[in-house]
Design a binder for these strands. Structure first.
Length: 769
DNA sequence: ATCAAGCTATTTTTT
DNA sequence: ATAGCTTGAT
């Protein structure tokens, strides 16, 4: 996807970075200046200088980046003997898993501990919230997960979290965190944050383990260092302080993971930890044409906390980025795709392929319309990060079986498969068994034999549960003997999963399609087994959980020439000849939430900067006049960043002010029309729904909270009255919107080369009078 | 155990 | 608008 330009020579700064083989090194590199190339060349250089490749560890942000780096490093080194040592290149998370596998017992986890992804986390979070009988309105699973993530990233344990929690939501989250974590622990499972957290704990509680791990490598290289969070930072220090051969590469202007705990301070303060560090700056941009770079530079200059640097173009020519406005998101999609079609058929000397084009957006709801349009026009595309292969129901089912085989303590998986396919073990049975297990203080799995003896259940049910148990036992013992694909096939056969799919999915061809996915998973297992010398079930599961969400097993099938649809976050590190950055509106980019909280607009600006700097040849920025939200069209305000990029600071400030006024109003405008009566009905309703929760004191508390909230809830619906919305927005819109009296400040182009313009085109793109 | 009907909230980004 | 959930009828 990204073009590995065959520049034979490195420029002097790059060369300096590549050839500084010893000691700490900070490479501060702007977008498109060859960061990754520096790391890759450096790895090759280290190996050429006689370093044992297996003593080199490089850490990347994504698995995809790791894969590419591995490949490129090997290419640079030329042909090597088969089976020769290779450098270890992986993400932080994969690295931690490998470390933890070696020491799991010492931390009280089974060797075959499970790794829980976002979906598993949600299941667990839902359970935890149900346990403390909080009505779902107060704190949703997703909210809980972000609370927990925040705490874990700071190394805060449940008890401390509960004590330090301020406010209703935080308190509830603190309580739920304890449940969540103990369930996770009891399941012999770790979530993504645990991987980092537990590695740190291992290192601090067991110095010998830390030493042993640190001693495995003599060189450490970290890509995208600006996005390291505190846990990762500590791991880096722990791994590198022995040899001090640490090379970090990053760009503070591209730090876009603050919400996940990333700290720019780590890259800005690198020299505090490594005083002898050499610093190299890369400012020659090889990627984008000058006009694109000019926009990027002007935009990012609006941020206050950053290392000042200016990217210098190394290529001449190019046209200014285009800014287009459309009536609504449907038109936006339609016209962008139309333009793409024209790009694709343009018969210049260098034909444009779909794979040369990317559509970038801020939020995951945006691509829908584009997908529909691309499918209609038969342009091949890949949606990065959408519902991935591994999120499909049938895939999760099969993987859950495998996880139970590897680690029967894994309760999320166990509960998923205990009645899949339906085998007559219903909720009440499961609840009774669980209750017994909880009382006995053990996991469901280990409690099963005793539970079946003492819990009152119909004889038939006992037989079914026993049948399930022996099924799992039976396959558990086959685990080591049988190759993974064989194991899977046999299991699928025995549980007759195919019939289950046919029963569940009656649509034409649907069951077949789903079974096809299952077969693909079996194939993936076969491929894994072929590739991996020491293939294990655990290893396969690990790969399935940690691998990029976008790399489906049938990776190199037809999608080679596909256009890319992805979020700005996923676009980091990539480049495309032609980029469409869509939805450039206040509320989307910068996102409403970052505006309301007052913080984070700088990060949104960096996000925009990342988007702009992905483009090599052309950049098109689009926004709409109005966008559907909750079934109603709402007028949009063009993003302040559009104005900023063009140096129209005044206008940008007006856009910002208008957006802030609008969003804050929506948030906190006091109620007006809501009658007491309607508020009361609502509260009553809510209270009723909580009533049947069994808890005593807790139930009362939630009910009270709910009724306290009733008024606000009812009122929120009121402010959403569309007519009111329009009144509120009308003037604000007029002030900042191009196409009205002030629009000459920001000329908006209609779609270029749209052949014979339709009669109504003026309406679609009101290009000022 | 399964399904249709009705209700709800919709406030980002991901290893 | 719509996904995701609960509820009540089979």
């Amino acid at each position: 996807m990204s073009v590995w330009r065959p520049v034979p020579n490195l420029n002097s700064a790059q060369s300096e970075a590549v050839h500084t083989l010893k000691g700490p090194l900070l490479v501060l590199a702007g977008a498109g200046t060859g960061k990754t190339r520096v790391i890759t060349y450096r790895i090759a250089e280290l190996i050429k200088s006689g370093i044992d490749p297996s003593r080199i560890l490089a850490v990347t942000f994504t698995n995809k980046a790791a894969r590419e780096m591995r490949q490129r490093a090997l290419t640079l080194l030329g042909r090597r003997k088969a089976g020769a040592a290779v450098p270890e290149i992986s993400t932080f998370h994969s690295l931690c898993v490998r470390i933890l596998r070696r020491h799991a017992r010492r931390l009280g986890y089974p060797d075959a501990f499970s790794i829980y992804d976002r979906g598993d986390q949600e299941t667990l979070a839902r359970q935890a919230l149900r346990d403390i009988r909080v009505s779902s309105g107060n704190l949703r699973p997703g909210d809980l997960i972000s609370f927990i993530g925040g705490w874990k990233n700071k190394g805060i344990l449940p008890q401390a979290a509960a004590e330090g929690a301020e406010g209703d939501r935080a308190e509830l989250a603190g309580e739920a965190y304890a449940k969540y974590q103990s369930q996770l622990r009891a399941s012999g499972a770790m979530d993504f944050d645990d991987l980092l957290l537990l590695t740190n704990r291992l290192f601090s509680e067991f110095p010998d383990a830390r030493l042993a791990e640190a001693k495995r490598f003599d060189h450490l290289l970290i890509d995208e260092y600006q996005d390291t969070n505190d846990l990762q930072y500590r791991i880096v220090k722990a791994m590198a302080d022995r040899h001090r051969n640490l090379c970090v590469v990053g760009d503070d202007d591209q730090s876009i993971y603050g919400w996940r705990g990333a700290e720019i301070a780590h890259i800005l303060g690198f020299r505090d930890d490594w005083p002898e560090a050499k610093v190299v700056r890369l400012e020659s941009n090889y990627r984008s044409l000058a006009p694109i770079l000019a926009y990027a530079n002007t935009l990012i200059a609006h941020n206050s906390t950053r290392h000042k640097k200016v990217l210098n173009p190394s290529r001449d020519g190019g046209t200014a980025p285009r800014i287009l406005r459309f009536e609504d998101e449907a038109k936006e999609a339609e016209e962008v795709v139309l333009q793409i079609q024209q790009l694709l058929v343009s018969n210049s000397e260098t034909p444009v392929l779909p794979s040369d084009i990317a559509i970038l957006f801020r939020t995951n709801e945006q691509p829908r319309v584009f997908e529909a349009e691309l499918r209609r026009t038969k342009i091949p595309y890949i949606l990065v990060g959408g519902q991935s292969f591994y999120d499909r129901r049938e895939i999760r089912d099969v993987l859950s079986y495998l996880r139970v085989l590897a680690n029967p303590l894994d309760e999320v998986s166990l509960l998923r498969v205990i009645n899949t396919p339906t085998r007559g073990i219903g909720t009440s049975t499961i609840e009774a068994l669980l209750e017994f297990a909880v009382a006995a203080g053990t996991s469901l799995w280990s409690a099963l034999p005793a539970a079946l003896r003492s819990v009152q259940l119909p004889a038939a049910t006992i037989l079914r549960v026993e049948g399930f148990r022996s099924l799992i036992e039976q396959f558990r013992s086959k685990q080591g003997e049988l190759p993974i694909p064989e194991l899977m096939r046999e299991l699928l056969q025995v549980i007759d999963y195919r019939s289950e799919l046919e029963r569940l999915h009656t649509g034409p061809g649907e069951a077949e399609a789903r079974w096809g996915a299952v077969e693909e998973l079996v194939n993936a297992a076969a491929l894994y087994e072929q590739r991996e010398k020491a293939a294990t079930l655990v290893g396969f599961l690990e790969e399935a959980t940690l691998s990029d969400r976008d790399d489906t097993p049938d990776e190199d099938k037809p999608q080679q020439r596909a256009l890319t649809l992805m979020t700005l976050h996923s676009a980091k590190g990539l480049e495309f000849p032609h980029v469409f950055l869509v939805g450039m509106e206040e509320g989307i980019l910068p996102h409403q939430r970052s505006v309301i909280e007052g913080q984070g607009v700088e990060e949104e600006r960096r996000l925009c900067y990342v988007g702009v700097t992905r483009a090599q040849e052309t950049l098109t920025l689009t926004f709409t006049r109005a966008r559907m939200k909750w079934g109603q069209p709402r007028p949009s305000i063009p993003s302040r960043f559009l104005a900023e990029m063009r140096g129209e600071t005044e206008r940008a400030m007006r856009a910002a002010a208008a957006a802030e006024a609008l969003f804050n109003k929506k948030q906190s405008e006091p109620e007006s029309e809501t009658t007491e009566a309607s508020a009361r009905t609502k509260a009553e309703k809510k209270a009723k729904s909580t009533k049947k929760a069994k808890g005593k004191a807790r139930t009362v508390k939630s009910a009270q909270q709910n009724s306290a909230r009733g008024g606000k809830v009812a009122h929120a619906a009121e402010t959403m009255n569309p007519r009111k919305e329009l009144e509120v927005q009308g003037p604000a819109q007029a002030r900042v919107s191009p196409g009205t009296s002030r629009s000459s400040e920001m000329p908006i182009q209609g779609p270029r080369g749209a052949g014979a313009p339709h009669a109504n085109e003026k309406k679609k793109f009101p290009v000022r009078a």
